[in-house]
């Protein structure tokens, strides 16, 4: 095992403009916000971003003008309302938005992790999403070769880079997700490069003594970054809850046309 511990800037160097990226977490939980701040600061852009149910991560990257295409089953701030910058950018035709459905995006990532070209996924047929995705070449209705009728084949999703914020990792890139994992293990294994950001760097003995806690072993990992509070203002289970007040402050500043000010502050935080 090699030492893969780097700083945030070195980790951002692993990303290229135009890359397809995916991030850990959902909604207001375990989003790699510190990495996203540095990514915005780097000036790289034209990203395709893909996830099941993102929130502020997608919204702020789009607000910063870094995104060409976004793919998600749902994106918003739940009870706090629509994602203002996603909404504006889509309505003004600034970015392409591809609406996914949870079962498809999850299994697309799983296919990516399994090294398979596609996975068959139930449901979906009969909705307007099918035509959209068939046109884009992401899905195709096929016949079950074993006689089960029509089913949607979902093409593997293989992001260029996955950025996964975890609670604990060692310097070699062994990583432990505590509590909800969402699709993060599949994202980590599907991507060509994997960047782990971690609340804590623990000795490798932590994993030797508790191998079941090693949810993403080192052999998948490209780089590890130590970033306490790296998911803030989203939550990191066992470390801190979402900071709802801060999320509301972001939304208020967006509404008041001050999103650039928020982004400046967001970058300075890291």
């Amino acid at each position: 095992m090699k030492d893969k511990l780097v700083d945030l800037d070195a980790a951002v160097d692993l990303v290229g403009s135009g890359d397809t990226l995916t991030f850990s977490g959902v909604s207001m939980v375990r989003k790699p916000m510190a990495f996203i701040a540095k990514l915005i600061q780097s000036g790289k852009k034209d990203f395709t971003i893909v996830d099941r149910e993102p929130g502020m991560d997608f919204d702020i990257l789009i607000a910063a003008g870094c995104v060409k295409c976004a793919r998600a089953a749902m994106v918003g701030f739940e009870l706090f309302g629509l994602a203002p910058n996603v909404r504006r950018a889509v309505q003004e035709g600034e970015i392409q938005f591809i609406e996914e459905t949870c079962g498809a995006v999850v299994n697309g990532l799983r296919a990516g992790a399994m090294g398979l070209p596609f996975l068959p996924v139930k449901g979906i047929i009969g909705t307007d999403l099918v035509e959209l995705h068939e046109k884009l070449g992401n899905w195709k209705i096929i016949n079950d070769p074993f006689g089960g009728g029509e089913i949607v084949a979902v093409k593997a999703i293989v992001p260029d880079v996955a950025v996964i914020h975890v609670q604990k990792a060692d310097r070699c890139g062994n990583a432990s997700l505590e509590g909800s994992r969402f699709e993060d293990v599949y994202k980590a294994k599907a991507a060509k490069k994997l960047i782990i950001t971690a609340e804590e760097i623990v000795p490798t003995d932590y994993f030797k003594e508790n191998p079941e806690k090693n949810t993403i072993p080192y052999c998948y990992t490209t780089a590890v970054v130590h970033v306490p509070k790296g998911a803030y203002p989203t939550a990191c289970p066992n470390y801190y809850p979402p900071d709802y007040e801060e999320v509301l402050r972001y939304l208020k500043m967006c509404r008041e046309g001050k999103v650039k000010e928020y982004i400046d502050e967001f970058i300075r935080r890291w």
Binding site: M74, A83, R87, Q91, G103
Partner: peptide, 12 residues
């Protein structure tokens, strides 16, 4: 209006 999206609706 771009709504939040269907989440798992189409699948489930």
């Amino acid at each position: 209006v771009k709504l939040p999206g269907g989440a798992a609706a189409a699948y489930l």
